[in-house]
């Protein structure tokens, strides 16, 4: 009798797994959101715990130090204001030239700041989750970057959270451009499994003249990533497939191992 009950329990568990695996993607995303909401109190506690040392440090920071910081921020603010005035003038000039040559007007990208709240617990994916979702206007395939450079794109999004697939994952391929005289173009693909800072730039022309330290930026092809976002720098390059094309290793500008805050780009 007991054995029969055990097998019933086993059968029920297997059926639950099979049902979940056969659900459509939209239903799975909703279920993930529902199960993820169980952890919301823990996230609150964790963020409060992270904030506590900073609050304590603020309490004990001497007044002299605060005044120095305020002074430095004022100077930085003044410089930024001057730069903004110059940028506005350059943008106006750019618009006038574009209208003269009948070029399509470039629309600037808007930015949304989000905090990285968790990482993928599985070793075979390279994704993170951020604390912004559809209620903040996010949708799939929006590019994500830090101050240093590109980090990935949004792969799935729920009401309050979004999953970002990072550069270096098999599901995030980026069309990239090397800033050299030839403007060599290639596709950024997954790198090593252990070192998150290195990725491979492949399908470069066999005649590509790459040197260590050359900058790699997004090419704008593919329709997801806008042109000109810095990605990283060339480490080394070698011909592959009997010299059919060149492959290079790229060191990413952004440190994917210690992401805290990221910017989501809106068109």
């Amino acid at each position: 009798m007991l054995k029969q009950q055990n097998y019933l329990v086993l059968g029920a568990a297997v059926i639950v797994a099979l049902i979940l695996l056969s659900l459509p993607t939209r239903a799975t995303s909703r279920l993930k959101l529902a199960f993820g909401s169980w952890f919301l109190p823990l996230f609150g506690l964790a963020s409060a715990g992270q904030q506590l040392p900073a609050d304590l440090a603020d309490c004990v920071l001497p007044r002299r130090e605060l005044l120095l910081q305020i002074d430095a921020l004022r100077r930085e603010n003044q410089q930024l204001k001057e730069q903004q005035v110059q940028s506005v003038a350059i943008a106006r000039e750019n618009d006038q030239l574009r209208s003269l040559f009948n070029w399509q007007k470039q629309s600037p990208w808007k930015l949304k700041l989000a905090k990285v709240v968790m990482r993928d617990p599985a070793n075979w994916w390279r994704t993170v989750q951020i604390d912004a979702g559809t209620r903040d206007g996010l949708r799939e395939n929006l590019p994500v970057r830090t101050e240093a450079g590109l980090i990935g794109r949004i792969s799935s999004v729920s009401l309050t959270h979004a999953q970002v697939v990072l550069v270096g994952d098999q599901n995030c391929r980026v069309s990239a451009l090397v800033e050299n005289p030839a403007r060599d173009m290639g596709v950024l693909m997954a790198g090593g499994t252990l070192d998150t800072s290195l990725v491979e730039l492949t399908y470069l022309a066999s005649s590509a003249n790459l040197k260590p330290g050359q900058t790699v930026i997004t090419s704008g092809l593919g329709g997801i990533f806008p042109k000109g976002i810095p990605i990283g720098q060339i480490v080394d390059a070698q011909p592959v497939e009997y010299g059919l094309y060149t492959q290079a290793r790229v060191k990413l500008n952004a440190n994917l191992g210690s992401l805290e805050q990221v910017w989501v780009l809106f068109p």
């Binding site: 695996l21 659900l23 799975t28 199960f35 993928d120 617990p121 994704t127 999953q163 599901n171």
Partner: peptide, 8 residues
């Protein structure tokens, strides 16, 4: 739920 794995 936290992973990019298919649910289940």
């Amino acid at each position: 739920t936290f992973s990019a794995n298919p649910l289940g």
